[in-house]
Structures are given as structure tokens and as C-alpha cells.
Design a protein around this nucleic acid. Sequence first.
DNA 1: CGCCATTAGGAATATTTATGCAATATGAAA
DNA 2: TTTCATATTGCATAAATATTCCTAATGGCG
Lengths: 160, 160
Amino acid sequence: MKNKNSRLETIRLIISEQDIKNQEQLLQVLNSRGFSVTQATLSRDLKKMKISKVANTYGDYLYVLPNHALLQKKANGLASEGISASQPRYGFVSLNFSGNMIVIKTKPGYASSLAYDIDNHNVPGVLGTIAGDDTLLMVLAEGSNRQEIKRLLEPIIISL
Amino acid sequence: MKNKNSRLETIRLIISEQDIKNQEQLLQVLNSRGFSVTQATLSRDLKKMKISKVANTYGDYLYVLPNHALLQKKANGLASEGISASQPRYGFVSLNFSGNMIVIKTKPGYASSLAYDIDNHNVPGVLGTIAGDDTLLMVLAEGSNRQEIKRLLEPIIISL
DNA sequence: CGCCATTAGGAATATTTATGCAATATGAAA
DNA sequence: TTTCATATTGCATAAATATTCCTAATGGCG
């Protein structure tokens, strides 16, 4: 049962882990993980997360997460002002500032969904994000206060 | 009326030129171009070409070609320090400076083709670009003049 | 030519997804 | 707490898309 956010997060995980070809199937999987909702709710959930169905090489249409990045990068920031998660969400690993940028490392595959969530929160001072597979690059507005941005990001990354 | 292949090609063209949100709408456009078919045929056509519907930044689900790089549209709008499209009809959404970088936001799927184009123009002062799905990051040479760079970029963005 | 296999496509229908409405829950403000 | 606003969700149904079934048209090939 749990709450909506954990359901959304679970949906993202399921979508990225296995081939889901319709909402009925997604419903089954969610049930097996303790979530009980109707197809109507799933339709709304998917729309909210901008999830869509695209064809794979075999022509099967499967649900996929949005904002899949085309590039992967590696970062090597310094860590004096970073965050380390106690109860990491989204496979969060680390966060470091470098110049007017933030580099967030995640477990493989998690970067884009975290980027999606950060984008959705419209954090002031964050001009944009680019996500690879396990690295998320955020560009900050000039004059941004690092502590302030960190304070705003922390609940998004860690909470729940 | 013509043959199937020219219809398929026309569909591809329409999809990449305008925002099509359902098969009914596509049907209208095809009619206006002299093709007369039913929704059933369109469904088959779209499947054959692996076309799918994905959400744009505003949450509207639109048909897109399987290869995002094929999306080529035109950009309009430009502005003061940065450039921003007040009513973004094309891929370009906004441009902002931050330190020695520029962040360009585009509609989903457009960033990489814009990056490609900018790279090809060898704009002096632009060291390199990296693109995600809807965000393009450009790294500028130190001491670059913003107005100068903007002046060089504008025609590229607008003429896309 | 006649015969068969293949392809294309319409009409009707099935399947899948989205939504209007109403009920309940949650949260904020007084 | 009470009240008002907003969010969440299910149910029923609408809308959108896919498919089944059938007919025609086409192209070898003997």
C-alpha cells in the first residue's frame, strides 16, 4: 500500500528492470510488491512521470523512462562540501561541487531518474542537468550559494 | 493515393515536421496531402516504422521517429543576455551562461542534433559540447566574450 | 492462361489507455 | 479542532490504438 511516492519510485524501478508491455502487466508486478491500485491510477502515474512506450529492435513496444541520456561521463570532484546519504534513494552514491557544477554519482542506471526528479522540483539555481548512466551533472546559476543548493537538494535525494 | 512507400515516407516527414498527437490528426494531414486511408492502416504503418509516442517537456505525448537524431526542426526566438523562446515551437527552448559554460535547453530529443550542428560550425571560443536528451552543455574557452559567442551561436540555432 | 502465394487495406471489433465524476484523505490556516 | 482547499483514487466510460477477418489486387510460375 504505502504512499504514492514510493509507488512511483517502484514503477520507475520496474520499468528500468524488466520489459513491461502494458499497464495490466505493470499492475501484476506492482501487486507482487505490495502495491494495490487500479489501471486508472497507473495511467496517471505514467503520465506524471512522462514514461512512454517505444519500440525495441524486435518491434515490441515497451515502457521506458524519459530523459535517457546519450552520453556518459566520469567526474572527479573534490568532496569537502558533499553529501553522503544515510538512506540513499535512487541509488545515490555521492555529491560533489566543482566550480559552478555539481557532480552526483549514483549506482549504475539510476542517474536519469534522479535527474528527472531534480528537474521536476525546479530547484532555484539549477540551470539544467545532464544524466549519464551513473553520473549526473548539474550546472548551477552564477552566484549560487552552495550550501543553499545543497540544502534544497538533500531532501530530494535522501528523503523517503 | 499513390503507393504505400510514399505514404510511409510522407508520414515520416509529417511526424518530424509537426506535432502529431494521435492517429486521427495524422489522418487529417495525410488527407490534405492526397492520401486516403483509415486509422487501421495508420496503426499498421506506425508500427512498421517503429514510431512511438513520447512526452515532451509540457507533458504532451507526441509521435516521434525511432531515431531521435532524425528530429530536425527550426528554432525561433532569441533574447537579451541569454536567448529564450517565449513560445517555443521548435526544439530550442532557452540559453543561459554560467561561468565558462552555456546551458541550452531543448525539447526532448533535440539536444544532440543541435550539439552536432554547433560542433560542425567550429565556433571559436567553444571548446566542446556534450548533450543529453533535452540539455546541451557547451564549455567555453577562458576569457571568451559572451556577446561575441552569442552572436556566433544565434544564426546556428535559428537556422537549424 | 489458371493457380497459388503474398500483400494491402477496409470494417468491425478487441484491447489498451485516458478521463469525468464523486468520494475520501491530507494538509494548511484560523 | 473546524473549515477550506488540494490531492489521491476508484469506478465507469470515453478515447485511442491494435487486431481479426475478409476481400481485392498483384506477381510469379507451370
